[in-house]
């Protein structure tokens, strides 16, 4: 039950990008293609899982007064390790993500999870929490990236080879040929508007679900009054 709750928190109710609005700098800057979004999302997920686990493991050792510098050291180490690995083994991806890989360190969602969850919970739930929040963040990055890529260039899944190797270079799908590039979607203002649309969509779904829940509640209460009144 606890794990189910952690999952819904990370993926939906407390989604780092759509509810907490954390990590917006990389979110807006890097999501010009779905693959870039996916790559940064996966990198963030790896870091979140690693830092949450480490923070949880050391939570009894680290006094509350020094916890913030300690978290910063842990997070910076994980990000640097990830950056070196990407630089060595996924060079194309490293070039395309550029400085934003290093900037994962400053993503408030990561220190936020360390402070709000990992430092108060056992190792396994903390790991799970990191993964779920990471996936929640990744889904938003991919959706945003896909939207902007499609609107901006009329194509989707370009540069998949950067992440999945040469066999993926044919994954790119051109949905509209002769598409005149719509630069606005690719520039930062387009990112803000696309994020706004996603936020609106999430809030709309939430309010629909709430309405349905309250209608269902009313129905159950009215049906119980009905059954109680039938004998008379």
């Amino acid at each position: 039950m606890q794990y189910k709750n952690i999952a819904t928190q990370g993926l939906w109710q407390n989604n780092p990008a759509l509810v907490q609005l954390l990590g917006l700098c990389p979110l807006l800057a890097i999501t010009n293609t779905a693959i870039n979004g996916l790559a940064l999302g996966l990198a963030t997920t790896l870091v979140l899982a690693g830092t949450n686990t480490t923070v949880s493991l050391t939570r009894r050792m680290i006094a509350p007064e020094i916890r913030l510098p300690a978290f910063v050291i842990i997070i910076a180490c994980f990000v640097t390790a990830l950056e070196l690995t990407t630089h060595a083994f996924f060079y194309g991806l490293y070039l395309s993500l550029g400085i934003f890989l290093a900037l994962i360190t400053t993503n408030c969602a990561i220190i936020g999870r360390a402070e709000a969850f990992a430092s108060k919970n056992a190792c396994l739930p903390a790991f799970f929490d990191g993964v779920m929040h990471g996936i929640g963040f990744t889904i938003v990055l991919v959706l945003l990236g896909g939207m902007r890529e499609l609107l901006g260039t009329g194509k989707i899944l370009t540069d998949a080879n950067l992440l999945f190797g040469e066999r993926a270079s044919s994954w790119s799908i051109t949905l509209f040929s002769n598409y005149p590039d719509f630069l606005f979607a690719l520039l930062p203002p387009g990112a803000f508007i696309a994020l706004g649309l996603l936020l609106a969509l999430k809030n709309w779904i939430d309010s629909k679900m709430q309405q349905r829940a309250s209608v269902a509640k009313q129905q159950t209460t009215s049906s119980t009054t009905n059954t109680s009144s039938t004998p008379a």
Binding site: I62, I74, C77, T80
Partner: peptide, 21 residues
């Protein structure tokens, strides 16, 4: 001392990885 230890451990980890990559 604890913070210093953390910093040293972190630096050692990153230095090792740097060496191998």
């Amino acid at each position: 001392l604890l913070l210093a230890f953390l910093a040293a451990a972190g630096t050692a980890l990153v230095a090792t990885l740097h060496h191998y990559t």
